[in-house]
Design a protein around this nucleic acid. Structure first.
Lengths: 152, 152
DNA sequence: GTTTTCCCTACAAAATCAGTAGGAAAACTA
DNA sequence: TAGTTTTCCTACTGATTTTGTAGGGAAAAC
């Protein structure tokens, strides 16, 4: 289960916009520099985000990108869905589209539960939460468990 | 965040072994037929599972595969780690290896929390649980929420 | 009218995914 | 011992996805 570079970059780009506020747009190159993202690659990602209505853009001298909605209303799950598609998929299909037989029958509710627990984190955290370093209590609790940081 | 065909097939193959019990080994072809998995592809997966010490094999007439340990002691996370590597990775790296700057700093604890919540499901469910359709209460509860089955 | 910046298309190397093919080695059976 | 069965090993292939790069066109600001 991997988060692609596209998704990671998309979230970081939006966090820069969330931090910049609503006064003036931020240029793609400024975002790329701030977060160390290849600038032409980022442009493609920003196009996806615009088509997904998460950002609005303006061209010209004092142009750039702004969030299309308040940072408090955009969740991390929203971002991943725009750039990566479904949050969780199994063999390219969403869990409800799968069918299992024999001893594997209970796999379907398992994948559903997995997706539910992923949503519990990504659907609850907004860009504003991350940018201000104020994660919801549930998420803080999960992250504060010492075992959560050890590798296997 | 996707579960690959390899991982899905691996879990289903092991569930067939869990259901078969310990008496006699199950042939690769029998597993492939039972679960509708391409047989030569499955052979490669079973090799991984053997190298990962999740199954043992025997050749010849009455050969086949058996679980290397009781089904109650092998978790779904174990299986995914053997065939896919780390449970959750971001841009190919495990969360603790990442570093973020500026407004993205709180992304690291977020990915850690995400991984922790994935583990809460996959580390707690064993092959025996799924094969017998007796998922742990936590997982049942997650899967029974009606909203968990709706797509976006 | 010039500059700036987004916007669009096309391309491409590399990795991953999902298999296939053919046979060698080992174990069992008779 | 000979023959059958099944795992085990190596290699290969085609499709898709990922992660970018290159070059220029269109709109907006100044």
């Amino acid at each position: 289960m991997r988060i692609s570079a596209r998704a990671d970059y998309a979230v970081r780009a939006l966090l820069e916009l969330a931090a910049a506020g609503d006064e003036s747009p931020v240029k793609a190159e400024a975002i790329a520099d701030a977060q160390g993202i290849p600038h032409k690659f980022l442009e493609g990602i920003l196009t996806d985000l615009r088509r997904g209505r998460l950002v609005v853009s303006r061209r010209g001298g004092s142009g750039g990108y702004r969030l299309a909605a308040p940072a408090e209303t955009i969740t991390i799950a929203d971002v991943i869905r725009v750039v990566e598609g479904p949050l969780v998929s199994v063999r390219g299909a969403r869990p409800p589209e799968l069918s299992y037989t024999g001893p594997a029958e209970a796999l379907l509710p398992l994948w559903i539960a997995l997706r539910a627990n992923v949503r519990k984190v990504l659907d609850e955290v907004t860009l504003a939460d991350v940018a201000a370093n104020r994660l919801p209590v549930l998420v803080r609790t999960l992250a504060e468990d010492p075992g959560a940081w050890t590798n296997p």
